[in-house]
Design a protein around this nucleic acid. Structure first.
Length: 205
DNA sequence: AGCGGGATTTTCT
DNA sequence: GAAAATCCCGCTT
């Protein structure tokens, strides 16, 4: 039935809360705002934070890595929803995405900013920054949360990186605007963020 | 506060 | 060989 989530689990409650990931990335992106990333490091330290900025990408969109079809790099984007797509760029940065549905359709949501909730001290060690500079950008998020290509394809229903959708997710004050850092399809309004949240990478547009 | 350039290597043409 | 879903530093205003 539902092989992408909790294949070994009895906690179907959590699986149900992630069912929204099966939709189109442009609908999933705003719904990921307010969801929690929970990262367990090898040394047992737990980091967590609330997603406050996202961008949708899909295979009909020239700005998407999946636009030109499945390649070794983008294979995960065409796989099951609820997994992590991690890519390496500019010779030094990792960025991570939550894969959306349906299976066989290349789409994902870039996690652009997170508001830290737990483990800020440990994030500071990797970032050499503090406060909003910890996680106000996609590559900063990956550095703070120690996310690299080893986590590419990871199932987000399980440790060491879990996506958790709280029952009381805040749906108010969401801004929808155009995406950042792309050279084509600049007019598509697939960027979403919480208005006035200090961790948003770049307010307004 | 804002702009411009450099870093650095994977990925696909 | 060129571009890249970025970040950081240094310089100017």
């Amino acid at each position: 039935m539902n092989e992408s989530f909790g294949s070994n689990s009895a906690d179907t409650a959590e699986d149900d809360t992630l069912a929204f990931l099966y939709g189109p990335s442009s609908e999933v992106a705003p719904r990921l705002l307010g969801c929690i990333f929970e990262r367990t490091l090898d040394n047992g330290i737990i980091l967590s934070g609330k997603i406050v900025e996202t961008e949708a990408y899909d295979q009909t969109d020239t700005a998407s890595h999946s636009y030109k079809g499945k390649t070794p790099r983008t294979e995960v984007m065409f796989g099951p929803p609820g997994h992590l797509y991690v890519y390496f760029t500019y010779g030094m940065h990792y960025c991570c995405n939550v894969v959306t549905g349906p299976v066989g359709y290349g789409a994902a949501v870039l996690i652009r900013a997170i508001e830290p909730l737990q483990g800020e001290k440990d994030m500071e060690l990797r970032r050499t920054r503090h406060g909003r500079e910890l996680t106000n950008g996609p590559a900063k998020v990956c550095q703070a949360f120690a996310i690299n290509s080893q986590l590419n394809g990871h199932d987000l229903s399980a440790a060491p990186l879990k996506l958790i959708a709280p029952a009381d997710r805040d749906t108010a004050n969401i801004v929808q605007t155009t995406r950042i850092g792309i050279s084509t399809a600049k007019d598509i309004p697939w960027r979403f963020y919480y208005r006035n949240n200090p961790y948003v990478s770049k307010p307004s547009n």
